[in-house]
Design a protein around this nucleic acid. Sequence first.
DNA 1: CGTATTCATCGTACATTTGCGATGAACAAT
DNA 2: ATTGTTCATCGCAAATGTACGATGAATACG
Lengths: 106, 106
Amino acid sequence: MAHKATIGFSESENQLARFAKALGHPARIAILKQLANMNCCFCGDIVEELPLAQATVSQHLKELKESGLIHGNIEPPKVRYCIDQVNWEKAKKLILELFTINLSTL
Amino acid sequence: MAHKATIGFSESENQLARFAKALGHPARIAILKQLANMNCCFCGDIVEELPLAQATVSQHLKELKESGLIHGNIEPPKVRYCIDQVNWEKAKKLILELFTINLSTL
DNA sequence: CGTATTCATCGTACATTTGCGATGAACAAT
DNA sequence: ATTGTTCATCGCAAATGTACGATGAATACG
């Protein structure tokens, strides 16, 4: 018995948790910073910047894709990864909502 | 062989990932929302609000404590949990830095 | 002292995550 | 056709995470 997760929580709580989970590893933070800085990057450029094997980076990219925060376009023989602006803004909004709940009550 | 994590990344990347990881579960989001709304809560109040057993909630509270986002004060026979304002602001700042990297380049 | 309340921790079971080498798929160029 | 490049996926091993019941620790109350 393990892992109800998501069951019994609001959709925005689940969505925020999914975004946060995607941010919950330093490699993925580094990837997102790089993508945000350069707007778009080839997969190979990202692999070069990280202290991880290509297979591992590919896995982190997959998780970021599944969270919706990035997307990848095939441009043979490379793949160009970009921040997904829509979900990026959605994540920012959800996180800011959480962090600004109690500003007035202090 | 698994889990270098943290090794080879900057301290701010690691810190941000730790905060994000703490936010990466809907139960912990729900707990933080409750704490932020009421400023402080007794542990029992939190357990009542969540669809989880007391032991599970206690574990989530422990993780939030270890991330630094909250702290707990014993007020027998209860325990009062509060947002840790210092780390809360630190987390907010780190996350906002990430999300505002590329605003000008669009 | 015995009992009740509140919460943490232990032990267990199972799922997920992390990381890597090896392999596969797709395509370009020789 | 063979080769090289780029990247995804598979298969494996080990670490972490999630959830719960049971138990333990601390305190207050009778």
